[in-house]
């Protein structure tokens, strides 16, 4: 009885979560432009999607920004964790409190604050300002993923390497980095997905004439939804599904902490 109830509950919630997405997927293969009636199978909307230079540029922007910002954030964040380790606990706490601000703050506030900052400095908004913003909100996630790995055990392993004659550099490269690796990896992944997913902060920092997937969806929805967006949804869903599957399998093998 209890089991049956839980199963029903799970099914209802799953339908709630996935039915809307599947509706989009079905409509993406619809011949007509209708948002309700399925008139016949076609790939027209996929053709339109791939022929749209606007959307294709947005896709390129989204992924180059995500890769660059996640890489920079991972480097700065990892270095930060290493440097923080050398500081007194009190200093560390103050810095980590500041680190938490972008995560706890509402995205709209982060977006507005960066927009104002660029306006004050008269920095023309575009690709570079989006990149700067994305690095800013990604660093805290990297720090939070890597920091738990910088613990007593890592300290001891470093000491063990030094004890066995390794130089500081060698011990860091051969022992500390491998120990931090799972945290670095999940930090990078987290930063990457946050960047791909972000709309609000990008929206306020992008300026005119540049788009990412998120901002182009927003502007198109305002004008009127075209089914090519359903095609885009379908592709994104499949890519996310495959990517998450790979990460999940890998994380089981290599104990990468799978964060949200």
């Amino acid at each position: 009885m209890k089991k049956a109830l839980s199963s029903i509950y799970i099914i209802i919630i799953m339908l709630f979560l996935y039915l809307p997405i599947f509706a989009l997927m079905v409509l993406s293969f619809n011949e007509a432009k209708s948002m309700a009636v399925f008139t016949g199978f076609s790939l027209n909307w996929y053709v339109e999607l791939f022929n749209s230079r606007l959307i294709m540029y947005a896709v390129v922007n989204t992924f180059t920004i995500a890769i660059i910002s996640a890489t920079v954030a991972t480097i700065i964040g990892t270095a930060a964790v290493v440097g923080l380790d050398a500081m007194r606990p009190k200093t560390q706490n103050v810095i980590l409190a500041a680190n938490n601000i972008p995560m706890l703050n509402a995205d709209i506030v982060t977006g507005i604050s960066l927009m104002l900052f660029f306006l004050i400095l008269r920095v023309p908004q575009g690709y570079m300002t989006i990149l700067f913003a994305h690095i800013t909100f990604s660093i805290p996630y990297v720090v939070l993923s890597v920091r738990p790995r910088m613990n007593r055990k890592t300290d001891r392993l470093f000491e063990a390497a030094m004890d066995l004659g390794a130089s500081r550099k060698y011990a860091f490269r051969k022992v500390v980095l491998p120990e931090l690796r799972p945290g670095i990896l999940s930090g990078f992944l987290l930063a990457f997905t946050m960047s791909v997913d972000d709309f609000i902060i990008t929206y306020f920092t992008k300026g005119a004439g540049i788009n990412t997937i998120s901002t182009i969806i927003y502007s198109q929805v305002k004008i009127g939804i075209r089914p090519s967006l359903f095609a885009l949804s379908t592709i994104i869903f499949v890519v996310a599904f495959v990517a998450l599957l790979i990460v999940n399998i890998k994380s089981k093998k290599q104990e990468v902490e799978l964060v949200l």
Partner: peptide, 9 residues
């Protein structure tokens, strides 16, 4: 999985 899909979509 839904969290990995763009929330605008």
């Amino acid at each position: 999985l839904p969290m990995w899909m763009n929330f605008l979509l």
